[in-house]
């Protein structure tokens, strides 16, 4: 088996504020292999962004953060990397395509300058060379007039164009790992599809691993090889995308899938999972999902003991963290859960 590109092991991230501490990520582990796409899903606030940003050591500097665990990128622990090592790794081995293209480009600098900066960071190129490469990159992500966009300011571009610029910037140094944090949420549907195509092409070209963070399960089904489902800072289920979509074994995943818009049926709306995610400063004891879980039926162990991520049967890649995941093997229960969710 090949070595993983990225291996996150027991990552825990806690923010300390004046009065309380917020555990945004708790004991998260997963791997990404070269060339594969791993989808990370979960409700807003489940810790998806914080997981990846803490690996990149890009959490806001003004917050007090306590991080533990390991995040091995090509064998190197990012959490313990020196400033110099970080500088060498960022942009070259791993690139971030951030969540909101509106706020992620420096508003007072031209696109060309910002791209040039990415190029210059890892190789010494002549001014002309740099311009040529930058325009090529802009063309490769499908910008209509790369020469013109090179000299424009971010506010002169549309959201879709900015997101393409972000992708071009991420690809500037052919990184082996791309992290795309909801690359399409800010865009409208037709642009979304175009941007995803470009991302896919870029990935195919360089054989980079891709971590795709999203709320959009449809996108996961289309793009991802494997899925990591997060809830309240925990990984609650992970496995091959087919296995998860066909045979989810965690009540939260079942709920997420149940909340997908049903196409073809008479119902075409989104049924969110009832209740809301816990306050991360006061995560419930036991299973973090138990206050909302429709499968717990008030069983005590759910309230007292944190379920560990354990493999399901012989399939060692499909793992879930639920005391009663066995019961979910019976798929008639899924239907019941979905119905229950609908009634609530």
């Amino acid at each position: 088996m090949t070595e993983p590109l990225l291996s996150i092991e027991d990552l825990t991230v806690t923010f300390r504020t004046r009065s309380e501490s917020v555990r945004a990520v708790d004991g998260v582990s997963f791997e990404v292999y070269p060339g594969e796409t791993v989808g990370v899903v979960g409700e807003s606030g489940s810790g998806k962004s914080v997981t990846m940003l803490s690996m990149l050591r890009l959490l806001p500097r003004t917050s007090r953060v306590i991080t533990s665990g390991r995040a091995l990128l090509n064998g190197k622990d990012m959490l313990r990397a020196s400033r110099r090592e970080l500088r060498r790794i960022r942009g070259r081995e791993v690139a971030l395509i951030p969540q909101d293209p509106m706020t992620c480009l420096d508003p007072v600098l031209r696109i060309g300058g910002q791209l040039g900066e990415a190029l210059r960071a890892h190789s010494s190129v002549s001014r002309d060379e740099q311009r040529k490469r930058a325009v090529e990159l802009l063309a490769s992500v499908g910008l209509p007039q790369p020469d013109r966009q090179y000299g424009q300011f971010p506010h002169e571009l549309s959201g879709g164009m900015r997101q393409r610029v972000m992708i071009a910037m991420g690809m500037a140094n052919n990184p082996s790992l791309l992290i795309a944090d909801e690359p399409t949420t800010a865009l409208d549907v037709t642009i979304q599809a175009q941007v995803m195509d470009i991302l896919r092409e870029a990935q195919a070209e360089t054989q980079a691993g891709l971590v795709l963070i999203t709320h959009d399960l449809g996108l996961i089904a289309e793009m991802a090889d494997r899925v990591v489902v997060m809830y309240a800072g925990h990984v609650v289920e992970t496995g091959e995308v087919n296995a998860i979509f066909a045979k989810p074994r965690h009540p939260y995943t079942v709920g997420l899938l149940g909340s997908l818009p049903q196409t073809g049926g008479d119902q075409d709306w989104l049924r969110p999972i009832p209740g809301s995610p816990p306050d991360l400063a006061r995560i419930p004891t036991g299973c973090p999902f138990h206050p909302r879980c429709l499968h717990s039926h008030g069983r005590e162990i759910c309230r007292t003991q944190l379920p560990q991520l354990t493999p399901i049967g012989s399939d060692s890649t499909h793992r879930t963290a639920c005391h009663f995941s066995d019961e979910l093997a019976d798929e008639s229960i899924h239907g019941l859960l979905t119905v229950a969710q609908e009634i609530q």
Partner: peptide, 17 residues
């Protein structure tokens, strides 16, 4: 401004602080 997203983008490029 040091905590703005665009500064994070700059850091993510692998440049000196």
């Amino acid at each position: 401004t040091l905590d703005q997203d665009y500064v994070r983008t700059v850091r993510a490029k692998g440049v000196a602080e």
